[in-house]
Simulated scan of single mutants.
Amino acid sequence: MKSSRFYTLLQYFKEDVISEKEWHELQTMIKTGCFDQLLEDDLLISLAGKGKQEKWTADIEQEILAGIHAQISEHSNRSGYKLWIAVAAVFLLMSTAGIIFFKSKDPLPAKINTLSHKYDIPPGGNRALLTLPGGEPIVLNDSSIRQLKNQTGGSIVKAGNGILVYKANALAGQAGKEMFNTISTPRGGQYQVILPDGTHVWLNAASSLRFPAAFKGEKRLVKLNGEAYFEVAKNKRMPFIVQTENQEVEVLGTHFNISSYADETATKTTLLEGSVKVTAQAGQKVLSPGEQALTNKDTRVIKVMPVSIEDAIAWKNGYFVFNDEKLESIMHRVSRWYDVEYHFEGKQGDLSFLGVVERSKNISSLLKVLASTGNVHFKIEGRKIIVMP
């Protein structure tokens, strides 16, 4: 339980919503040295998420851990819990700095120009709707931090950088009627939520997550529609379970991605770290890091295969990655993020693409990359994309 509490406080700290009392609690835990492994793991995860883990060395690791301990000791007797500059530099800069580079044998030509379009469409952004247990909707966007609601077992705090933080209190887990919140993103939206147990979830466009105001009983159960990346807080006594339309994923504490859109033929579960058990009507499979389970929505049969982790979570890191991907599949993903319709005009060849495009760019930038092959052309008409040979 102490490890779970440490991880939860660490998430509050990284999102800058930690209270003074919680900051002193975290200081005390770090000073014991008992949580160095968790601290190290969190640093490595931040690096891996930005494609920088290969530059990590044992010397750097020891320097950072020593620096954190030194800063904690130096400032432990001073007033003001925001004397954490060195620690913040480690967590916040490492989690936001750097660019992911993906390798490909045959990348698209880099012939992106700056020609303006008569019509253009901006990318999606941090937009979501939070529905409270009583059905009250709250619109979430990029506004500043503020407390939204107090509920039995905790309060909801909205962080201004597209993150909803649910902070449990002393009443969390006590007996009583279970209440559920639902956070949903529209087409062209994305959002993050830190659940009451400290689990961090990234929601992709056109997705929803239903979760309790406080986790009670023997398991932590959430329900997902669409796509989400999970960094689950460890708690061996209370497994974390994600239910989708056609499968169930059970974990104790790990990092994984689930894509379960209603308009796709299979649910994809990709494991980055730890171990997960995927269960469907036709059986179950246990995944190892770097593996993906494909659960057919008609037969409920699970197939497991090795995949690129970077490709699977590229959306979460702000990129579209096309790895020998068919044009129809690409346009389907593009339409979801930019909230557009698309239409194929004329006979299209069997086209596949390799390349990387930032999700933060206007749609014209992405279409120019695809069109630079000379095999396909595009026309923007309002919020409709015409795909031409």
Score class of each variant (00 low, 15 high):
356 V>L: 04
247 Q>S: 15
202 W>Q: 08
77 N>M: 10
387 V>Y: 07
185 T>S: 11
97 A>H: 07
72 I>D: 00
107 P>K: 00
40 E>V: 08
332 H>Q: 13
107 P>E: 02
239 P>W: 12
16 D>K: 14
50 K>P: 00
130 L>N: 14
230 F>D: 06
252 L>D: 05
289 P>I: 03
275 S>P: 04
254 T>G: 00
48 A>V: 00
5 R>P: 07
126 N>T: 08
54 E>L: 11
304 V>Y: 07
191 Y>S: 12
189 G>V: 10
254 T>C: 01
253 G>L: 03
386 I>A: 15
163 I>S: 01
173 G>K: 03
177 K>T: 08
265 T>H: 01
159 A>W: 01
252 L>M: 13
297 K>F: 05
200 H>M: 11
211 F>L: 04
76 S>M: 11
271 L>G: 02
303 K>L: 12
366 L>H: 10
297 K>P: 01
189 G>R: 03
241 I>R: 00
310 E>H: 08
44 L>H: 03
127 R>L: 12
227 E>M: 13
359 R>G: 02
347 K>T: 10
33 G>A: 00
121 I>R: 05
120 D>T: 10
93 L>C: 09
356 V>T: 05
181 N>I: 01
166 Y>I: 09
200 H>G: 04
281 Q>L: 12
254 T>N: 02
120 D>C: 09
7 Y>F: 10
70 A>Q: 09
324 D>H: 11
99 I>Y: 14
197 D>P: 09
317 N>W: 01
372 S>G: 04
248 E>N: 08
261 Y>N: 05
29 M>G: 07
137 P>Q: 15
263 D>A: 06
174 Q>T: 13
308 S>A: 15
275 S>W: 03
122 P>V: 15
368 K>A: 12
321 V>K: 00
40 E>R: 11
372 S>T: 02
11 Q>A: 11
389 P>F: 09
7 Y>N: 06
385 I>V: 15
65 L>A: 01
156 I>E: 03
368 K>N: 09
295 T>Y: 07
70 A>G: 04
291 E>I: 02
133 P>V: 02
65 L>W: 01
387 V>S: 10
139 V>A: 11
324 D>L: 02
69 H>N: 00
280 A>Y: 03
46 S>K: 15
183 I>F: 07
58 A>W: 08
196 P>W: 05
80 G>N: 05
186 P>W: 14
135 G>W: 12
163 I>L: 04
241 I>E: 01
321 V>R: 02
299 T>A: 00
137 P>V: 15
386 I>H: 15
218 E>S: 06
269 T>C: 02
189 G>L: 12
369 V>P: 02
132 L>K: 03
122 P>W: 14
154 G>Q: 01
273 E>L: 05
170 A>H: 09
268 K>T: 03
176 G>L: 01
346 G>N: 06
225 N>M: 10
175 A>Y: 09
168 A>R: 13
152 T>S: 15
149 K>I: 14
71 Q>N: 14
233 A>H: 02
218 E>H: 05
310 E>T: 12
92 L>D: 07
3 S>Q: 06
98 G>F: 00
341 E>W: 06
46 S>Q: 13
328 E>R: 15
278 V>E: 09
255 H>V: 14
373 T>D: 07
59 D>H: 10
1 M>A: 10
210 R>L: 07
79 S>Q: 15
120 D>L: 08
300 R>A: 12
123 P>C: 10
217 G>N: 08
169 N>R: 10
160 G>S: 04
375 N>H: 07
338 Y>D: 06
